[in-house]
Amino acid sequence: MTERCREKYLVAGPPFLFLLLMLAVPCVITLIASMSYPGEFGGLAPFISKDTHALHGLTLETYLFFFSDFIYTEIFIKSILMAAGTTLICLMMAYPVALLIARSPKKRRNMLVLLVILPFASNFLIRIYAWMIILGPQSALSRLVNGILHMFGQAPVHLLFSSAAVLTALVYVHLPFMVLPLYTNLEKHDPALLDAAQDLGANAWQRFCQVTFPLSLPGVFAGSALVFIPVLGVFAIPEILGGTGDMMIGNLIKEQFLVARDWPFGATLSVMLTTILLLIAWLTSKAGAIHA
């Protein structure tokens, strides 16, 4: 063995073995668990059992179970719609910010980027908690909204524990993931293109629609993936800010593992979520490549 080769194994070995054990193996276990029978007292049934009447071995039953009741498909569809809505709102809010930063003087750009990241130095739960305060039944915002509704003779509404509260917090938590890739893209645009468009008689809106936006599509796709993927996995936001009807995939998974203790079904849900995410990651990277 050459010295360089030995060095390679010495350096790569520990992190590789650690991640093999703590990442690759658990992923394989999840896949196997999704095809197992539930154990008698939660967990999984043993794969090999002396009792021939007990359920053991591998099965696709849990996958069939998923489709046997429409409620699970419905939660998946609702979660995907929620994630799509979050992505769209994030895009609309992040675009002006990213554009403003990209068109600011160079010296000020890093500062403005830092200002986008900074609020996210705070704990994830604190950011959710902030919305509990803002949307609470006694809060200034709630009183304002209900005051206006009252003026028009409408019944008062609860802002907290609603889909709107969940959507607001989802946007709030994931906004910087959209701003940064957009800004990275917009910063590279050649200002001469806009000059040219202006000389050819395009107004500000036309310059945006026909020059800036089409050029920024790779950034749009990258940001969308960075928002969409984590949103599809959340469970704390719907649990804390949502009502009973706002369950998302994450809540369903958490429920199976910690409440219902049906681990094979929980694992099945995780595998299905992973499949959807991989599909989306693949699609966005393809779409990004076409426009790059």
Partner: peptide
């Protein structure tokens, strides 16, 4: 070492809940 790069970056990119439940399964079942 491309495979190691992939393994190191996967937990950064994947939704936390997926890592959480697969580790839970691994700790308890294995």
């Amino acid at each position: 070492f491309k495979l190691l790069n992939f393994m190191v970056m996967t937990p950064v990119a994947m939704p936390e809940i997926l890592l959480g439940v697969s580790l839970l399964l691994f700790y308890i079942q294995v």
